[in-house]
């Protein structure tokens, strides 16, 4: 499939974050990745409860700039909740998250972490793109309008500039000719590709994918995964929650296995898939891997 047009200028090296961890990681990112210098994510001891159920029981995870972390695990294990705490869509009850050393959703005042005002949180979110399981495209806007909405409204870019960039992004996900279509006129796979273009429009350091292919018909899954694969090489940090084990094995630098609100183990795909140390990991993969691998 010739979905991906030539990779554009999107190498993030232009904005250098003054980041101590940066060089620790760059070598990990797959293939011919440009050296990424921004998008270091550090999750430290994050806890979260919904009512009496504790869904995150002290989770810590580091993803280096340009890294690709794929989170897998049974449903209800807290993967999606963890992902949603990274852009403060979900408030944490304990612990903290930093992106390039900057706290997400909070600021230090004295010896307390005060939650930021809405305005500042929204500003932080423009650094973090998110792609949802159910796409959540705005149905009353065309594909292009969906992509340029946030750059115009949240970043106050000019309409002409946003349109130009929006068309480039739609081209990058192979949908330039569908720019004026409304989401309902597109297939599920096309909608998700528009959603990815929309997330890229803010030039984020980090992209979060919440089960991006779970709502798709099987034959449409690959067109979306191909786009994500291409992004993985571009130097943007990706954190992906998915059930696509084949994809995880191909693309991830780090596979994280979560169960019951905890990270059971994490490591390279080879480590996790071939010789998992924990019994829980082994039993989970024994249930899911076979159907996923006979591609």
């Amino acid at each position: 499939m010739s979905i991906i047009a030539a990779r554009k200028e999107s190498t993030p090296t232009a904005h250098v974050a003054d980041e101590p961890h940066a060089e620790a990681s760059a070598g990990d990112s797959a293939g011919t990745a440009p050296v990424a210098t921004r998008g270091q994510v550090d999750i430290t001891n994050v806890r979260k409860s919904f009512g009496a159920t504790e869904v995150l029981k002290g989770v810590s995870l580091s993803v280096p700039p340009g890294g690709v972390a794929v989170i897998v695990g049974p449903s209800g294990s807290g993967k999606s909740t963890l992902l949603r705490t990274i852009n403060h869509l979900e408030k944490v009850d304990g612990g903290y998250i930093t992106i390039d050393g900057e706290l997400v959703g909070y600021e230090v005042r004295g010896n307390k972490l005060h939650e930021l005002r809405e305005k500042d949180i929204l500003k932080q979110r423009t650094n973090i793109g998110m792609v949802f399981q159910s796409f959540n495209l705005f149905p009353h806007l065309t594909a292009l309008e969906n992509v340029i909405e946030a750059p115009i409204v949240a970043q106050k870019r000019s309409k002409a500039e946003a349109r130009k960039r929006g068309l480039e992004l739609l081209d990058r996900v192979g949908l330039k000719d569908r720019a004026d279509a409304y989401p309902r006129q597109l297939s599920g796979g096309q909608q998700q590709r528009v959603a990815i273009a929309r997330a890229l429009a803010l030039d984020p350091k980090i992209l979060l994918f919440d089960e991006p292919t779970s709502a798709l018909d099987p034959e449409l899954v690959n067109e979306v995964l191909d786009v994500i694969r291409e992004l993985a090489k571009s130097g943007t940090t990706l954190i992906v929650v998915t059930h696509e084990m084949g994809f995880a094995r191909d693309v991830a630098d780090t596979v994280v296995f979560m169960d019951q609100g905890q990270i059971v183990e994490s490591g390279t795909p080879q480590d996790i898939f071939a010789n998992p140390r924990e019994e829980r990991t082994r039993s989970f993969f024994s249930k899911v891997i076979e159907p996923a691998f006979n591609i």
Binding site: L122, Q124, N136, A199
Partner: peptide
């Protein structure tokens, strides 16, 4: 829809 909009930083 609201969630997507806030994730995009729309006020």
């Amino acid at each position: 829809q609201l969630e997507a909009a806030s994730a995009l930083g729309i006020p």
